[in-house]
């Protein structure tokens, strides 16, 4: 039995209102929602895949491609925006060679821009795999990436 089936079987209820929790559980486990996983959820809930895509693409949380080993989130909330989060983003573009929503070819880094991660007192903020880096300056990006790379080896 595949991972997706195992997750689906943990849900006792089979109705539309468990669809979002199901998608969340599958994404948590697999890192993203594959076509195959969506098909399986669809047949489990007797819903066409188109309906599930219609729902999943509505929400920012769901991804349809795997993220990198290190997922970098750049906050562009009001406070971070005023503190030049854009210059941090540009620096990341430069060093990683990818735009937001993309993953580097070696699968190491992926980049995402968020509307606000709720740490406005520490602006500007970026998060790598959920770990916050407060009061980041564009000049620090190179070092942060180097250190992160070291962690992987």
């Amino acid at each position: 039995m595949g991972k997706t089936e195992e997750i689906l079987n943990q849900f006792h209820q089979v109705s539309r209102d468990v669809l979002i929790p199901m998608l969340q559980a599958v994404q948590d486990e697999c890192g993203y929602l594959s076509e195959e996983a969506i098909e399986k959820i669809g047949s489990h809930l007797s819903l066409p895949a188109s309906k599930i895509y219609g729902l999943a693409t509505f929400y920012n949380q769901f991804r349809f491609a795997p993220t990198g080993k290190f997922h970098i989130q750049v906050c562009n909330g009001s406070a971070c925006h005023l503190d030049h989060s854009i210059s941090i983003l540009k620096e990341l573009f430069k060093h990683l060679g990818i735009r937001d929503g993309e993953t580097t070819r070696d699968g190491m880094f992926s980049l995402e821009v968020l509307a606000c991660i709720g740490a406005c007192g520490q602006s500007p903020v970026i998060a790598i795999n959920g770990v916050y880096y407060p009061k980041v300056k564009a000049g620090m990006i190179k070092d942060i990436l180097e250190i992160t790379k070291l962690k992987s080896s």
């Binding site: 109705s15 539309r16 209102d17 468990v18 669809l19 979002i20 929790p21 998608l23 969340q24 219609g54 729902l55 509505f58 929400y59 920012n60 949380q61 769901f62 509307a115």
Partner: peptide, 25 residues
């Protein structure tokens, strides 16, 4: 507990309810 899936409009109460029902918010 129900987890929001990240949509600003879900702060609106009817949208929030649709989202909990497994619909688009």
């Amino acid at each position: 507990i129900r987890y929001g899936a990240g949509a600003f409009v879900c702060g609106e109460e009817t949208a929030l309810i649709h989202s909990m029902e497994g619909e688009r918010g």
